[in-house]
Nucleic acid binder design. Structure first.
Lengths: 139, 139
DNA sequence: TGATTAATGCAACAATGTTGCAATTATGAA
DNA sequence: TTCATAATTGCAACATTGTTGCATTAATCA
């Protein structure tokens, strides 16, 4: 997903291309991984955008509802990212809370089918995070 | 883990066997799956225990810190359970929010080693939840 | 350019969890 | 059993994250 595609996508859903909206998209694209609303806000401030906190939440809700970004709650905080080509999961540092992507050659798709059959549970999506210590935070 | 073992465990860590603490352990044992602080409180009330909300949180912190129970944050809410013999993951219903256990013949242990090597990330634990619709909530 | 309505700021609220402090109670020792 | 000690508790106040109503502002299209 590149910037222009996303902007078009927003227009197609009846959304307006505000400075804030474009700013959020650019920051998330540059981040290329999960970002919290608080960090997003502080980055917006650095680029001269000072939206109200409630506006950020409403904006993230709009983008999430329109599938333009993905939401993932980790340890009680909502994080957001632009969807990637490759399905992936996350490494979460227990010390500095940095989050990075990890691609697994996993069989979770297969597992989901098994689950559906064995538990009569219709799986919509899954969430897999590995908690530990990143390179910088190891001893 | 049976009740008496757990009580002994609590004593060994210098904890006192209060009515509340025993009540919490019994409810979590009976539940045999993740339970939120709010649901725990309402079950305690049914058994004539009416602790303050802050006491519940402190109690759950104590039990978690002493490895007597496990904490798992799902969609922004902390859930607790007595550790099981078998490692497992969870099915989370997007409608009624019921949580059930699922045991996977997964290779996450193997994956963790790969992650450590490839990302220089020391994995401590992981969290895998499948979101979808339980039997009752499907159409 | 003007009308329409999406987007915004503000303030008040809600849910979950935390903390300081004084009062209570479980426990081990006498 | 009784007492001293320190763990546990209730209460109230607070913190963080996220939500909502309403009046104002601004992006968009005709």
């Amino acid at each position: 997903m590149n910037k222009e595609n996303i902007y078009q996508n927003i227009r197609n859903q009846g959304g307006r291309l505000t400075r804030l909206r474009k700013g959020i998209v650019q920051i998330l694209l540059a981040e290329d991984c999960l970002l919290s609303s608080a960090k997003l806000l502080s980055r917006l401030n650095k680029s001269n955008l000072t939206p109200n906190r409630s506006t950020i939440f409403r904006e993230l809700l709009f983008l999430t509802n329109n599938q333009i970004i993905l939401k993932n709650n980790i340890s009680g905080v909502d994080y957001y990212e632009i969807p990637c080509d490759k399905h992936h999961h996350h490494l979460v540092c227990l010390k500095c809370h940095a989050i990075s992507k990890v691609e697994l050659a996993d069989q979770l798709q297969k597992q989901e089918k098994k689950i559906a059959k064995q538990n009569k549970f219709k799986v919509i999506n899954h969430s897999l995070e590995f908690y530990g210590y990143c390179r910088k935070c190891q001893v």
